[in-house]
Design a protein around this nucleic acid. Structure first.
Length: 630
DNA sequence: TTGGACGAG
DNA sequence: ATTTCTCGTCCAA
């Protein structure tokens, strides 16, 4: 990297130049206070104020502040917690459903306040928000002659929407602390004004989280994700901190005070390697302590002789390590982080279910199948919750659902199924490290995507016996006695599914449209991915049955006509997937199928394998299902 | 595409 | 009775 020669007292030292920070953005970070415990308290208000612990298996995943006052800690064994806090109430937190639901609601609310829709969840209890454009808008509106009586506009279109605030001071804490009388001077600095506005937005949002949803939180305000998150940790709980990035030494002093391991993005592995180097510890095979990366500060690493991105790269260089990680760490040490807050998405990139069995490892085929079934059931349920929506087409036949259950349709589906296991380290092995963690994957069998007349249990049973068990045998050839300590089943490699109907309301920028991306439907977002509306061909058939998605080799989605033009191929050759028709029985039981036959015989053709009428464009994909399904 | 390492809560 | 249950990214083969 770039270096510059400095002369100090005659001796020349080569010093790596500090990277340049970009303060163009405004980033908020929210961290809900002891989230799991708060969810359970809200579900059962009688618990409020009492010491509460949340249990997973044999340990406390977390606890509220009343419990912490008694010395209870996260990840503490239950028995120990009861000893030091006899009145401790312990509830199970093994089912994550209520935590996921609450997390999603809070995230949806926060998300509606980023006009660029950049709202990223980190775990269930943290959210990054990019509010750059909201802040810029309000900066222009600010009346310098009446700062005390300012109004923050949350909407471009509805001037009523917003809140009053005093723009002569920050909301919450600031870092570093500044003389109040200097503040008027600082207000001439546009960056300072933006951070001040952001502190009030964060304060308002935290207040709403508490009043409207019942969750207190900690907040961090700065110009990138790393700084916002670290700032938020300065004053917790129930408070917020704005890190003033007005001068480079403000930022550097702030970073320098942290231990290496505290920097998000520097994990135990990286911290260990750097620490060993800085402390000149020869790599003795047994020098690992429990606390890793907590001995050395950012300042000490930074000031280590001839420290530079290149040196860091060499320190971290090992097979499989990320290229450019030297520069990345170097940037972190200086509070530089260009990573963007990712655009909000309703579709997860993967869903996994796992269970651990350390008390009693699995060893017999019976135990194994029981667990595979249980995990498969949870997984199929999660898929239907997170990847499917109720199919209520505005213009379709209103009397379509007689039974209570709304018909579901996929908004995305996974292509890959993966099974991972962990073998418990044997009683005595010198380095009981990994190598116990292994996984195998395969294409997801298409029957899992059948939403019609198929109970979760039935699908899960098939999934366990026809897919997971074979995968398991690929991992472990032994018939039994595996000493299994963990099973993880994951679906990944998501494919967005095209929408079938309701492509309307293109232009109208109504006022209601604004605040809400809150009310932005999943369909709205998926429109970007939608390439083909099959309604004209199969107007009667349930929309899921005829959804298709076209993808070119660059994964860019295009209109089918354009694909034809560009590539000179027939439509049938670029139809990538057709879901839901995998089960011929389901089709034949569908009375609508008759309508299809009558109306579309011209453009359809009989499948020579199952004898059903399939629209011409879908024949290829349909035939693929016959091969996949067997 | 697959399997693993690593980092986050 | 140290190892919960996830989710995401990146790399090499």
């Amino acid at each position: 990297m770039k270096t510059s020669a400095l002369t100090s007292g005659g001796a020349k030292t080569i010093v790596a130049r500090a990277p340049k920070r970009n303060d163009d953005r405004v980033i908020l970070h929210f961290d809900y206070d002891c989230f799991y415990a708060s969810v359970l308290e809200n579900a059962n208000p009688g618990l409020k104020g009492q010491p509460l612990g949340v249990k997973q298996k044999s340990i406390l995943a977390t606890c509220n502040y009343a419990a912490r006052a008694h010395g209870v800690k996260k990840l503490m064994p239950i028995a120990e917690a009861h000893k030091i806090c006899p009145g401790l109430v312990v509830l199970s937190g093994e089912d994550l459903t209520p935590f996921r639901d609450a997390s999603k609601r809070l995230w949806s609310f926060l998300r509606s306040h980023s006009w660029s829709d950049r709202a990223e969840r980190l775990g269930l209890d943290e959210v990054f928000l990019d509010v750059t454009d909201v802040i810029a808008y309000n900066q222009e509106l600010l009346n310098r002659n009446a700062l005390q009586d300012s109004f923050f506009q949350l909407s471009r279109h509805d001037p009523e929407k917003g809140f009053s605030f005093d723009a002569t001071q920050f909301f919450g804490c600031i870092q570093p602390s500044v003389d109040p009388k200097d503040l008027t001077l600082l207000l001439d600095n546009p960056l300072c004004v933006r951070l001040l506005l952001a502190s009030h937005l964060a304060g308002y949002l935290r207040l709403k989280l508490e009043e409207d949803f019942g969750y207190t939180s900690s907040g961090g305000i700065s110009t990138n994700k790393t700084l916002a998150k670290l700032a938020g940790s300065v004053n917790k709980p129930q408070n917020q901190t704005t890190l003033l990035t007005l001068r480079d030494d403000y930022v550097q002093d702030f970073m320098d005070g942290h231990k290496l391991r505290q920097i998000p993005g520097i994990g135990s592995r990286i911290a260990q390697l750097i620490e060993d180097h800085v402390l000149s510890i020869s790599t003795t095979p047994d020098s690992r302590d429990l606390e890793i990366g907590t001995k050395v500060t950012v300042r000490e690493v930074r000031q280590y002789p001839s420290m530079s991105p290149d040196l860091l790269e060499r320190i971290l260089d090992r097979p499989g390590s990320e290229r450019g990680s030297g520069e990345k760490v170097w940037n972190f040490l200086h509070g530089v982080d260009a990573s963007e807050v990712k655009e909000a998405s309703d579709v997860p990139t993967q869903i996994s279910i796992e269970d651990t069995y350390m008390a009693r490892p699995l060893n017999t085929p019976n135990e194994l199948m029981r667990e595979l079934r249980a995990i498969a059931t949870s997984l199929v349920r999660r898929m239907r919750v997170d990847l499917a929506v109720a199919d209520d087409p505005d213009h379709s036949s209103p009397a379509s659902q007689q039974d209570g259950q709304p018909q579901l349709r996929w908004i995305a589906y996974p292509r890959t199924l993966r099974l991972s296991t962990f073998i418990r380290p044997k009683p005595n092995s010198t380095i009981p490290e990994n190598l116990g963690r292994r996984s195998r994957s395969q294409p997801l069998p298409s029957f899992v995507l059948n939403l019609k007349d198929t109970s979760i249990e039935a699908v899960a049973e098939r999934l366990a016996s026809e897919a997971l068990l074979p995968l398991f045998r690929r991992l472990h050839s032994e018939r039994q006695g595996w000493n299994l300590a963990l099973i993880n089943v994951c679906v990944a490699n998501m494919v967005m599914v095209a929408r079938s109907s309701e492509t309307g309301n293109g232009g109208g920028a109504g006022g209601a449209r604004d605040i809400g991306r809150m009310f932005r439907t999943q369909e709205d977002k998926l429109r970007e991915w939608t390439v083909y509306d099959p309604t004209p061909i199969a107007p009667v058939l349930d929309s899921t049955s005829s959804s298709a998605c076209v993808t070119d080799t660059n994964d860019d989605v295009m209109d089918i006509e354009e694909v034809n033009k560009e590539k000179g191929v027939e439509a049938v050759e670029v139809v990538e997937e057709l879901i839901e028709t995998s089960d011929p029985v389901a089709i034949s039981l569908d009375s609508d199928a008759d309508a299809w036959e009558e109306e579309d015989e011209d453009e359809s053709q009989r499948c020579h394998l199952c004898g059903h009428i399939i629209p011409i464009f879908a024949i290829l994909a349909h035939e693929r299902f016959h091969s996949v399904d067997d």
